[in-house]
């Protein structure tokens, strides 16, 4: 029972990944192409999830939106993981002023609710993928830095690291060979949780109209577009939201499982 249940997230997430990768190949959708003769169609045989205010297929938007979410999520997590891990490992290993500067910098960024900082950054600049990834990474790297710093702090006291130091092994080599590998587990667990947060935040920004440009297909945008048709065409907002929630639920469960496996550490 337990093992069977715990596999559900893997199945669901694989399905999402498949939709994100293969879906766009099977379904043709161009956000630019409107079909005013078929606007606000109910979900049915012609359009499974109905159509929006410009006659565009909502199902296709959900499929293409999956790709956008995965793309933004993966890019942001990769950028934050690389930046956060590098900074955290170096600060934790070398300590000293570098570590102090890092801690204060993190304190400053944490003074703002993450979404507020992302809103100020994304709202200030032209809407683009790069700006969104940047705005989300601005706070997402912090957790990676904290966790890897903690790991580095504990690893540096281990006997074999001391031994390597005494033997005169270059510091860069010690870092890469002896310290970094220990951060892998927590980083993977964290990446899963951060992925969920980032996907949610991107949808939120796009919902507020300060996320991705109109040429991109995003769940947040589709949900926002549907808000004005709520009284007559509930499906435009409702269905992409269900797709989004389902994804987040499963990542959450997976993240919990991974966290349990790799130890809570400083994950919070």
């Amino acid at each position: 029972m337990k093992t069977w249940l715990s596999r559900i997230p893997y199945v669901v997430l694989t399905f999402y990944a498949a939709v994100a990768v293969i879906g766009p190949l099977l379904i043709d959708y161009n956000p630019v192409r409107t079909d005013l003769g078929h606007r606000l169609l109910k979900p049915g045989a012609t359009a499974w999830f109905g159509t929006d205010g410009l006659g565009r297929d909502v199902f296709a938007q959900v499929v293409y939106g999956a790709r956008t979410s995965v793309l933004i999520g993966v890019s942001t997590v990769v950028v934050s993981a690389v930046v956060g891990t590098s900074i955290g490992t170096v600060a934790g290993y070398f300590r000293g002023w570098l570590d102090t500067v890092l801690s204060r910098g993190i304190d400053i960024l944490l003074a703002f609710p993450a979404i507020l900082l992302a809103i100020v950054i994304a709202g200030s600049f032209q809407r683009s993928v790069v700006v969104v990834v940047g705005a989300l990474s601005a706070t997402a790297w912090i957790s990676f830095a904290r966790v890897t710093r903690g790991t580095a702090l504990s690893v540096r006291e281990r006997a074999w690291v001391d031994a390597a130091r005494v033997l005169g092994v270059r510091r860069r080599f010690i870092l890469v060979r002896h310290v970094l590998p220990f951060t892998a587990g927590p980083v993977v667990a964290l990446a899963t949780l951060e992925f969920a947060l980032v996907v949610l935040a991107e949808a939120g920004l796009s919902f507020l109209g300060i996320g991705l440009p109109n040429s991109a297909v995003s769940w947040g945008q589709t949900i926002a577009n549907g808000k004005q048709y709520l009284a007559t065409a509930w499906w435009i907002s409702a269905l992409p939201g269900i797709a989004l929630s389902l994804l987040i639920v499963n990542i959450g469960i997976l993240g919990d499982q991974l966290t349990a496996r790799f130890g809570r550490g400083q994950l919070r």
Partner: peptide, 13 residues
């Protein structure tokens, strides 16, 4: 004005 402009863009395309 997004829907209107998107419809125009669609026709031009």
């Amino acid at each position: 004005f997004r829907p209107f402009n998107q419809a125009v863009v669609s026709d031009l395309q």
